[in-house]
């Protein structure tokens, strides 16, 4: 049984963010905060990723992009909305091009508040996401075991 929480692979995508939260996500990878000591690897390919870190709100242009990335990620997967814009639209929620936070398009598992979200908050959010990932992995493993038992009998 693979333990995902020992080395989750993270993918970061910016959907209409001001770059503040993206820079803080990158800063989490740099020596001062260093999420790599938890085994986290930053990958560019959604098919390699377990956790999706999304910043910025959803607008009409990037809605389909975000949904496609989400669908390309293999199960079990966790979505972490980093920053207030990703949680609820932030100061831009009245703009004509913004639909809202990330949860208008894809299901979000952890919300990380902050404008720009501090690297420490992102680490906290990641740790919570790992718990959710473990639960999902255990649930899907139980499901597949049940199926294979049903097939055998």
């Amino acid at each position: 049984m693979p333990k995902f929480s020992k080395s989750p692979w993270v993918m970061h995508y910016d959907g209409s963010s001001c770059n503040g939260c993206d820079i803080e996500v990158l800063a989490s990878l740099t020596p001062l905060y260093d999420i790599e000591r938890f085994g986290v690897v930053n990958t560019g390919d959604p098919r390699h990723a377990d956790i999706l870190l999304i910043t910025g709100g959803i607008n009409y242009h990037n809605e389909s992009v975000v949904r496609q990335i989400f669908e390309q990620m293999p199960e079990p997967k966790v979505v972490v909305a980093v920053g207030i814009c990703a949680c609820s639209g932030g100061v831009f929620r009245d703009c004509y091009n913004i639909k809202g936070g990330v949860d208008t398009t894809i299901p979000v598992d952890v919300y990380v508040p902050g404008c720009a979200a501090r690297p420490e908050s992102i680490i906290d959010g990641l740790v919570q996401a790992l718990d959710v990932l473990e639960k999902k992995s255990a649930a899907s493993a139980a499901l597949s075991e049940g199926e294979s038992n049903a097939q055998q009998s």
Binding site: D14, S16, H61, V65, F92, D94, C95, Y96, N97, I98
Partner: peptide, 13 residues
């Protein structure tokens, strides 16, 4: 156009 939010219109609100 992926990051276009519509901020100049927000000035009127």
């Amino acid at each position: 156009g992926f990051i276009h939010r519509g901020m100049e219109d927000l000035a009127s609100k």
